[in-house]
Amino acid sequence: MSDKHSIPGPLANEGLPLAERGLFCDAPPRQYQRANKITEAFWNWARAQSLWILGFGTGCGAIELRPLMTSRFDMYRYGIQPRPTPRQSSVFVIGGYASVKTLKRIVRSYEQMMGPKFVVALGSCTINGGMYWDSYNTIKRIDQYIPVDVYIAGCMPRPEALLAGFQELKRIIRAGRGEGQNEYARKFEWYKANQKQVIKDWNMPDYNW
């Protein structure tokens, strides 16, 4: 077995080669102040009406995401549309079970999203591991690694359940409770410790945004 896989990579941005440091942010995430009450309410209303989901299927549940685009379910009428890049999307849909390998990608993509950002976790696997509860390679609860706004239970949840979940997310955002970004910044050490506990080959920077 080559050493490449057994030696963990640099643990923080300081450990990166000098040439690569400029490619990543060099500060941990910070909490952002809310605007005044009326402005924030107006913005939250707009945020709830324009949900751009990151089209990154992280598990088998992502297959239930695709029918939402079709004429039968038509998520566009709720202001939901997919975007290909984390930079522009505001909702991250965790599509079911997350293996440790995928969790790395989930963390990196989540951190690259611009706030306020929301997470919808679908399927029982994201809640308690589901049918993978005793797997050596999947995580049990996604909200120990990134903050989650809405869980949609089921194996698989139907597209209708997803739409209901998105309506619940809209209610949360309009009520001003969609503060996952600040939550992540506030408990950053806890989240990072949890992530590093399961991701053994941590060969990525601590700060990705």
């Binding site: 107006f42 707009a46 009406q49 324009s50 038509d74 009428r77």
Partner: peptide, 22 residues
């Protein structure tokens, strides 16, 4: 054969983009 997004959706998208915090 869909209902489609509201006519004012482009406005909402622009407000949402502008209201991003970082």
């Amino acid at each position: 054969g869909r209902v489609g997004q509201p006519v004012w959706q482009p406005y909402l998208d622009i407000i949402k983009s502008t209201a991003k915090r970082n």
